[in-house]
Computed example of a mutant assay.
Amino acid sequence: MGNQPSTVRYVAPASFLFDFAAQQYGIFSSPNMMDIHNGNIAAFSPQPYFIGGFFFPQQLFQLAWLWKLWKQDGSANECAMMNRFAWVYSLGNVCIGTWMFFWNANDLKTSNVFVIINTVAQVAYISTQLEPLDWKSTPNWLTHVVAKTFAGIGVLDLLHNTSAAYFKGVPASSLVQVATGVAFAGAAAASDWIFGGCLVYDLVALSCGQSGSWSRLLAGYAGAVGGIVALRNYF
């Protein structure tokens, strides 16, 4: 029942429009999302322009995927794949759109609830439910790109919002620094180049948003994670 294309063809685009409208509110309201970011700097605060730099091209892939979904353009298996992911995709858009209102209200603990739901849902889906990648199938690889970039930026969102909500102004301890490297390396070792590339991007964004030795360590982690992803997928 939940995978009927007649339903999901409307739900997914509607969720995209809701999220897009919420982002415009976040940008143009006062205080705006940048004001809240600047007032809650923490050890996992990224350089904020990296977020916009990620979402613009990612939204283009989303639009291409939504067009395929709307037209049900593909074989029965390809359409079933798109339809299944569309429910998690829609959940993510609703969560991130709702997150924006609490973020701009400077209620970061409540906004973090929606970040957790989204990130856990997206990472769990790509880890357990997503069909194997097939570059010969446009619906397939578009679904992979949208799903894995959603999950990849979700990791950054989770680190950012959690640190800002609960550890504002607290520097990363030695334990946190080591755990960060281990966690990203472990995730990279199990990732393809799409999700793995997102992990590298997350670390670069964090490095550029921090300063001093922590920034340099994050940059080193980005290089190491990039190497792990390359070794796993190309050699």
Rank of each mutant, 00 (worst) to 15 (best):
I51Y: 05
S75G: 10
S45W: 04
G92I: 01
A222D: 03
N112Y: 12
A124H: 14
V94G: 10
W214K: 03
Q129W: 14
G186E: 02
D73Y: 13
P46H: 01
N77H: 15
G197K: 03
G92N: 10
A230D: 12
V94W: 01
S163D: 09
A80T: 11
Q4I: 14
A230K: 11
S163N: 00
F195S: 03
G212C: 00
Q47K: 14
K71V: 10
Q62S: 14
I153F: 14
S137C: 06
A179E: 03
Q24Y: 15
F150M: 12
G197W: 03
M100I: 10
D107L: 08
G220A: 07
Y166H: 04
D107N: 09
D202Q: 05
T162D: 05
F55C: 00
G39M: 01
V94R: 10
I96F: 14
I36H: 07
T110K: 02
A224D: 07
T149G: 01
G154Y: 02
A185L: 08
M1F: 14
Q72P: 02
C79K: 14
G212D: 00
I96G: 03
I194N: 02
G227I: 03
Q59P: 00
N112G: 06
S30V: 13
S207I: 04
V88N: 09
A189P: 06
G226S: 08
A121N: 11
Q23L: 15
A183N: 02
S29Q: 04
A12L: 06
L133E: 01
V229H: 07
L158N: 04
C208H: 15
V170C: 09
W70M: 01
A43S: 13
I41C: 06
S211G: 06
L69M: 02
F184E: 01
F20C: 11
P139Q: 07
F54I: 12
V182T: 12
M81E: 15
A188W: 11
L217V: 05
A121Q: 05
N83G: 09
G212Y: 03
P132T: 11
T138D: 05
Q72A: 12
A230I: 14
S174G: 00
W193L: 11
G220R: 05
A219R: 04
P57N: 10
G227W: 04
S174V: 08
T138I: 15
V115Q: 02
V229W: 11
K168D: 02
D202I: 07
A14M: 15
A188V: 00
N38D: 13
I96V: 12
S174H: 10
A121M: 06
A189D: 04
S211Y: 08
N3V: 09
A64I: 15
L199G: 07
T128S: 12
L231H: 07
W214M: 09
S174K: 11
I116R: 06
N83W: 01
